[in-house]
Simulated scan of single mutants.
Amino acid sequence: MSDSDPNFDDPNFADPALATELLVDGFGRTHEGVPPVVAGLDTEELLWRPDRDANHIAWLVWHLARQQDEQMAQIGDTASAWRSGEWARRFDLPYSPNAHGYGMTSEEVGAFTVADSSLLLDYHEAVHDLTIGVLRRLGTDDFTTVIDPNWDPPVTVAVRIVSVMDDAAKHLGQAEYVRGLLERRR
């Protein structure tokens, strides 16, 4: 067990329900941050890239939701919102339906299109609902379950959840930064 892996078996550890509420709060902060980052932007602004190799706001929001969706669905042993809600069809992207953004080339990011922010917001809302549902169903023993033994130390559910939340927050911050650059251009 690493320093970053909470020991839920330790009697000195706070109530595991508190850990769940902290995770709900953490994901809630990203959830609250997504609408303002796309608010009032037209399609051209959502797809604006500071340079030809940069990510744009729409792709960053989609990717933060996609990575969260797939990983939280895996943890919850359920279908992702992307698959169960026909989001792949709704977005109609030029990617495989399994794509989530990891490892995409600059050209692939540039091929991303979206008509307006409502589709991004609706998808992120569905992902947030899935995430909160998964978190609320996890029991104390679930947090310590090893889901990737290929690391040293092995990755537990708790560590993966923190990683997913961290990744989403970083991508939201990147989208906020791009929005700031966009606003300075106006």
Results as ranks from 00 to 15, higher is better:
5 D>K: 11
9 D>P: 12
10 D>L: 05
10 D>K: 11
11 P>M: 09
13 F>A: 03
14 A>R: 12
17 A>T: 08
17 A>M: 12
17 A>R: 13
19 A>H: 13
20 T>R: 14
22 L>H: 12
24 V>I: 13
24 V>M: 02
24 V>D: 08
26 G>L: 15
28 G>I: 02
28 G>S: 10
29 R>M: 14
30 T>Q: 11
32 E>C: 03
36 P>Y: 03
36 P>D: 07
39 A>R: 08
40 G>W: 06
44 E>T: 14
45 E>G: 10
45 E>R: 10
46 L>C: 05
49 R>T: 00
50 P>A: 01
50 P>T: 09
51 D>E: 09
51 D>V: 03
51 D>P: 06
53 D>N: 12
53 D>Y: 11
54 A>M: 06
56 H>R: 07
56 H>T: 03
57 I>G: 07
58 A>Y: 07
59 W>H: 04
60 L>W: 08
60 L>P: 07
62 W>Q: 07
63 H>S: 01
63 H>R: 06
63 H>A: 00
65 A>F: 01
67 Q>C: 15
68 Q>L: 06
68 Q>N: 11
70 E>S: 14
70 E>W: 11
70 E>D: 14
72 M>A: 10
73 A>E: 06
73 A>Q: 09
74 Q>G: 05
75 I>G: 04
76 G>V: 01
77 D>Q: 15
79 A>E: 12
80 S>E: 08
80 S>N: 02
81 A>F: 00
82 W>D: 04
84 S>W: 07
89 R>Y: 03
92 D>Y: 13
93 L>W: 01
94 P>R: 03
95 Y>E: 12
96 S>G: 06
98 N>D: 15
99 A>I: 05
99 A>T: 13
102 Y>Q: 14
102 Y>T: 15
107 E>F: 10
110 G>A: 07
110 G>D: 04
112 F>R: 04
114 V>A: 10
114 V>K: 00
115 A>D: 12
119 L>A: 11
120 L>H: 07
120 L>E: 02
121 L>Y: 07
122 D>P: 03
123 Y>F: 14
126 A>M: 06
127 V>L: 03
128 H>C: 01
130 L>A: 04
132 I>Q: 11
134 V>M: 13
135 L>W: 01
137 R>V: 00
142 D>T: 04
144 T>G: 14
144 T>N: 09
144 T>S: 15
145 T>A: 04
145 T>S: 09
146 V>D: 09
146 V>R: 01
150 N>M: 10
151 W>V: 05
152 D>N: 08
152 D>P: 02
153 P>N: 00
154 P>M: 04
154 P>R: 07
156 T>G: 02
157 V>A: 01
157 V>H: 05
157 V>I: 12
158 A>E: 04
160 R>L: 15
161 I>N: 11
162 V>E: 10
162 V>S: 15
163 S>Q: 14
163 S>N: 12
163 S>C: 10
165 M>D: 14
166 D>W: 15
167 D>P: 15
167 D>L: 00
168 A>E: 10
171 H>R: 03
172 L>D: 03
174 Q>H: 12
174 Q>A: 12
174 Q>S: 08
176 E>G: 11
176 E>R: 11
179 R>S: 08
179 R>I: 06
180 G>P: 08
183 E>P: 12
184 R>H: 09
185 R>Y: 10
186 R>T: 14
186 R>Y: 11
